[in-house]
Design a protein around this nucleic acid. Sequence first.
DNA 1: CTGTTAGCGCTTTCAC
DNA 2: GTGAAAGCGCTAACAG
Lengths: 334, 334
Amino acid sequence: MPQHPTTMKDIAKQLGTSVSTVSRALQDHPRIGNKMKEQVKALAKSLAYIPNSTAIHLKKQKSGNIGVVLPFLTEEFFSVAITGIEDILVEKGYRVIVQQSRNNYDRECTAVRALMEHGVDGIIVSVAAETYNHSHFLEVNQYGIPLIFFDRVIKSLPNSCVYSDISVGAFEAVAFLLEKGLQKIALLNGPITLQATNERLQGYVEAMKQYGVPIRPQYIKGGGITTQDTIQKMEELLSLAEPPQAILAFHDYVALDAMEVCKKRGLRINQDIFFVSFSNLSFCKYLEQPPIASIEQFPYQMGAKAAQLLLSAFDSPETYIREEVIIKSKLVAR
Amino acid sequence: MPQHPTTMKDIAKQLGTSVSTVSRALQDHPRIGNKMKEQVKALAKSLAYIPNSTAIHLKKQKSGNIGVVLPFLTEEFFSVAITGIEDILVEKGYRVIVQQSRNNYDRECTAVRALMEHGVDGIIVSVAAETYNHSHFLEVNQYGIPLIFFDRVIKSLPNSCVYSDISVGAFEAVAFLLEKGLQKIALLNGPITLQATNERLQGYVEAMKQYGVPIRPQYIKGGGITTQDTIQKMEELLSLAEPPQAILAFHDYVALDAMEVCKKRGLRINQDIFFVSFSNLSFCKYLEQPPIASIEQFPYQMGAKAAQLLLSAFDSPETYIREEVIIKSKLVAR
DNA sequence: CTGTTAGCGCTTTCAC
DNA sequence: GTGAAAGCGCTAACAG
């Protein structure tokens, strides 16, 4: 293990030439002789020369690193999304630095600031559920680092974003249930800090209205999405004088937790009560009684698109204009 | 957005002092006057100064970045493991760069070399299933970058590693089945390139021997672990004159795929045929008929330990000695 | 207590 | 075609 990794200086010295020549030779600069080029390259290889990218980046004023901040890597949706991001970015020679906010505001702030200080070239964020304040994102914008949101976006900010048409998805899901003759539909929604929560509600309300079904406020539950939260909300729903026949859930995990509550009460899934949820997680295929339908949100495509938006922000820093990309969701019935 | 981010030079100029004083003031150097420190810090704040970490790292000859290469972020085991890695490393001020090998040898080589060229301070790897050659790891060692393996380790290499005691786990799993009176136990194993595959076989063989149950070679299946591979192998097992009563599977995903084959043939899980597998995935709790037992491997702890091994490699580069940490697995019966 | 200086490894004018 | 030199932003001897 070399105490001192090979540098251009070493190569130059051994060849009796200058650092600049070595640099140029390695870059195939046109004004360097072929003989020299070959010599330099051969020696570089035999000395296991590795360019010091830190130095290059200091010189070029960019790091080649992209930061990604998202709630949980352990949620399938996000692990698939990051794969989409990685595929696009790694191909272009960037490296992806991930940080998990765990839906926590403070962790998100810390992560975003750490990335900024580290000098990443751009940041991609899916906002934490508990984030109530946007000052950390404003800082990023002030500092001039390109920032893109995906999935959990903030539309009021001047950054480009990619998201799923939640309200359309919710509309279709509710319509699907109504068409099946189920009218008592409850909504297990998420925290109001998330834009998507509002859109989900909108889609729900719109579908009910369009089908002329009255909306019962006690059927609409918002707030936390932990297993505990879900259990409590589901208990409340089932304790109503007229419990719902169907549930539109925030996402598959929430639906699964809610289903457990139903099962404990002796309800038969897909007979006594029906579920539709967002995400369409891959392991649903192994379930005996999966949600009757799920709204596929194409996380891979969403991640990939976010990465592309970031790249295009790099390409044209001046003429850059905000883009809002909507990935159409798809109701998958089982 | 500042065309030119604030540097120490800017601060020094405005304060009519030198860059070194600014540098020291910001670092709370003891030999700098309190008045000066306050002035510098105040101005730094008002100018939204952010230290350029690229420059710092060039100076200090380290990047603060740690590379992690693993098969799939979308597998729960790895997404949990990376969370353990992140928690330890981020706390110490490092950033984690992830790359997915997708179990592919070429992708792994590319990823490892890219990280090396990028100048990461250390690398943590869970080896790809298809990796048959170790030269890329030797390069890392030659280059003097600390390298730690986790889960899918290479024991013949001089690097520290953390892994689960697969053979003990397999032994316990087989013993568990034998104690239940099931003797016809098949093994759905993985690719021979993985060390763990061999250990799993060892544990299986040992348990069978210890209980005096003859081993039937046709019950032992190795090779690929894709859904297709699993389906084919399971079909073969079920087509035997004496099909197995129980299966020890490579991991939960393999078990689930295999279970589907059984169900299609009309076999009742946990009645006609029993499964035990590795991983203990969280979503198993939602399954009507989960594997009767699963071997919990504690991926979070494994990731965290790998990160700690890396940190200790940083602490004492000279006196560093190889460590082999075994995380005890635990058979979870349902 | 503070300034001067050198230098981390590399790229890139500007000379010749 | 090649070399000298400046400089990216920062740190850390060394010198006062």
